[in-house]
């Protein structure tokens, strides 16, 4: 499969400047922020994976972005606006339809205070 071999060559070219950007503590922190569980045994390999990708992303530092305004939207136009009219709501059944747990018109969730 010559195609695949070549693709690997391309990849190695791109990831040649790999650094250890992300450590195990970082992984723990971002997992907590993202509300994702990462097993202790996975921490290191995830840190390596993320380091690989972020190391590769660091080539963005080569670009001269002096006086460049960051792009905030893919469309250049004035923000559209709504009139202040009540045109929605009153659809409690629809809102609650897919709720894992509901009671008396409320969403029921695990206790959010101690």
């Amino acid at each position: 499969m010559p195609l695949l071999t070549r693709a690997y060559v391309i990849m190695e070219f791109f990831v040649s400047n790999q650094k250890n950007v992300v450590n195990v503590e970082d992984v723990k922190k971002i997992a907590r922020l993202s509300r994702l569980r990462v097993e202790d045994t996975e921490l290191q390999s995830l840190a390596d994976d993320l380091s690989g990708i972020l190391g590769w992303i660091e080539q963005l530092n080569e670009v001269d972005v002096d006086k460049v305004e960051p792009m905030t939207s893919a469309v250049a136009m004035k923000s559209p606006m709504r009139k202040d009219i009540v045109s929605d709501g009153d659809k409690r059944d629809q809102i609650l339809k897919n709720a894992p747990k509901k009671d008396d018109g409320f969403f029921v969730v695990p206790r959010s205070v101690e």
Partner: peptide, 26 residues
């Protein structure tokens, strides 16, 4: 305002729970 910042549901005070909720708000 009569309606919410980003949706058309009412801001009225003291209504039945989840009766003034749009799909956007939820």
């Amino acid at each position: 305002s009569n309606s919410k910042l980003f949706s058309g549901s009412s801001t009225e005070y003291g209504s039945e729970p989840n009766s003034q909720v749009s799909l956007v708000d939820a």
